[in-house]
């Protein structure tokens, strides 16, 4: 399972971990039915505490993306719906825009420009 952590992400760690796992599900790197690696392996890989990973996994379970099964670990239940998936990607987009010194307002302006171009 390929995970990416943003080095400059100011959000709390557990949210970053959730976002990384969600991104892997959204991009199809793991698909429904796939089992995730054990939490302690994820924690070791991401360099965070195992409890942080468990907290993220529980959050994603509560969102209905993951399923916990006794003895079989954690597996992907479904992909996030369109809106949630877009939220993740728009967040990435805003992060990227910030790297170019482009603020959220300007991104919104670009989106409006595109809307006017394609009626």
């Amino acid at each position: 399972m390929l995970l990416t952590l943003d080095l400059n992400d100011p959000r709390p760690l557990h949210e970053q971990v959730s976002a990384a796992i969600k991104r892997a599900i959204t991009t199809g790197d793991v698909t429904p039915g796939d089992r995730l690696p054990p939490a302690r392996d994820l924690a070791a890989a991401l360099g965070v505490n195992a409890n942080t990973v468990l907290r993220s996994l529980r959050e994603l379970r509560d969102e209905g993306l993951l399923e916990f099964r006794r003895g079989r670990g954690v597996s992907v239940l479904r992909r996030p719906d369109g809106r949630a998936a877009l939220r993740t990607r728009v967040r990435d987009l805003l992060d990227e825009a910030a790297q170019y010194g482009v603020g959220p307002e300007d991104v919104l302006a670009i989106v409006k420009e595109l809307m006017e171009e394609s009626p």
């Binding site: 952590l5 943003d6 690696p37």
Partner: peptide, 10 residues
Amino acid sequence: PRKRPVWVST
């Protein structure tokens, strides 16, 4: 370069 990718599997 701004992200830390990691692959983990078992």
